[in-house]
Design a protein around this nucleic acid. Sequence first.
DNA 1: CGGAGTGTTGACGTCCGTCAAGTGGGGTGG
DNA 2: CCACCCCACTTGACGGACGTCAACACTCCG
Lengths: 236, 236
Amino acid sequence: MDGTPSSPNFPCQSCEVRDTAICAALDDEELRQLNAIVTSVKLGPGATVFHEGDDSTYLFNVVSGSLRLSKLLPDGRRQITGFLFPGDFLGLSIAEVYAYSAEALVETTLCRFERGRLAKLLERFPKLEHRLLSLAGNELTQAQDHLMVLGRKTAAERVITLLLTLSKRIGVEQNGGWQADLPMGRPDLADYTGLTTETVSRTISLLRKKGLLDTNGMRRIHIPDIEKFSLHTGDY
Amino acid sequence: MDGTPSSPNFPCQSCEVRDTAICAALDDEELRQLNAIVTSVKLGPGATVFHEGDDSTYLFNVVSGSLRLSKLLPDGRRQITGFLFPGDFLGLSIAEVYAYSAEALVETTLCRFERGRLAKLLERFPKLEHRLLSLAGNELTQAQDHLMVLGRKTAAERVITLLLTLSKRIGVEQNGGWQADLPMGRPDLADYTGLTTETVSRTISLLRKKGLLDTNGMRRIHIPDIEKFSLHTGDY
DNA sequence: CGGAGTGTTGACGTCCGTCAAGTGGGGTGG
DNA sequence: CCACCCCACTTGACGGACGTCAACACTCCG
């Protein structure tokens, strides 16, 4: 539309997450400099972004799709530490190597930064670093909530808490309730909640019987009454 | 000792954690400005620094002693999200209100910052903010490890992982092994590991029987062989 | 030395994990 | 367009790890 010589258009400007991702901290001119160091990456379902233990060369922003972050014990036990959605930043907790693996749940687009180059940009734009610190604070709070879930909540409370969180993040209002299409299967729900797929399945069946939850297919959920549903998280 | 007019001594300079806490990011002149906004706070065992849900007016640095960070569910279930020791920063994950309670385990000295004034200093010294971001990254990594413990490890693995972490942080080499005086009791070990005091106690007894651990009194532990002990964390 | 509080041990129950057999939805090919 | 098949999910029966409840023992402190 408006391509003046001093401000020609560039990809980051029209990015879908321009106003929600870390980019929101920057004005157009600064964004241009960020644009100069990014690469767009597209991944299919199940594709690996990086593995736990790899050298942490890159950091990422989720543009579209969703990711799962997970850690493995040598004997195969897995813990999912988080799910990422558009606008989320990936790489806040990294040292020299990644502390977890990141995999795409569905077709996903990422925006990739080389670590060193982003670091230089952080020096130039303190407000970008300020935003990262604020994001890190949010993630820490989330992680602490998750610790409470895993350490002290029952199976039902864990599943309800997760479904509620996911609904708030990726759901839409529908039929006087709340509906969401989950990008992950039962094994992922299980490894996030510290349960088994069987227990997750049984719990969801129970919630359905109690009328707290509807399902349509295996991945579409519908919560008829959020208030009533929330009463079972253990948080109230 | 050396009180030149341009550089008179001030408390922060001789602080015990001058080189390990966030202060390590600052030179003497900058430290003076930090010094200008801090208050020293002393707490007895069991004293509360702040409660979950309180307005987050202050941030802190641990100078000496130790703290426990915990969250409560309405029915009284408690999860301890971390223990803090000298040099640790308290307040990385805070929004407008504290997301957890902080209590002193033993006699503890804190260095207190008003949130707004520290924020101003962060603007002036980007490297201070940089250091906070790096600390936040470490805390996130720790939290993720803790998630794996709570979600997927057995009772024995949880206790061993915790004792090992504590020994590395507050222990000393002794008798060809590693020894530590724990500042917290069984209930705290239990609420950190997501177990009950009984299970923690039984597990410790079992470790003693197996020769993996000695105890002297209720709070002094001694690990004769760290290598052998580590084999039971689940991480190898 | 004594008492109170913390930790330990024992008996038993329960929630969730394990193992195994269905069931159903969705995609493919006829 | 329908049938089939595969895979993911569901359901059931059973077992085990950890929680609960209660009695006992030890430590620490006055």
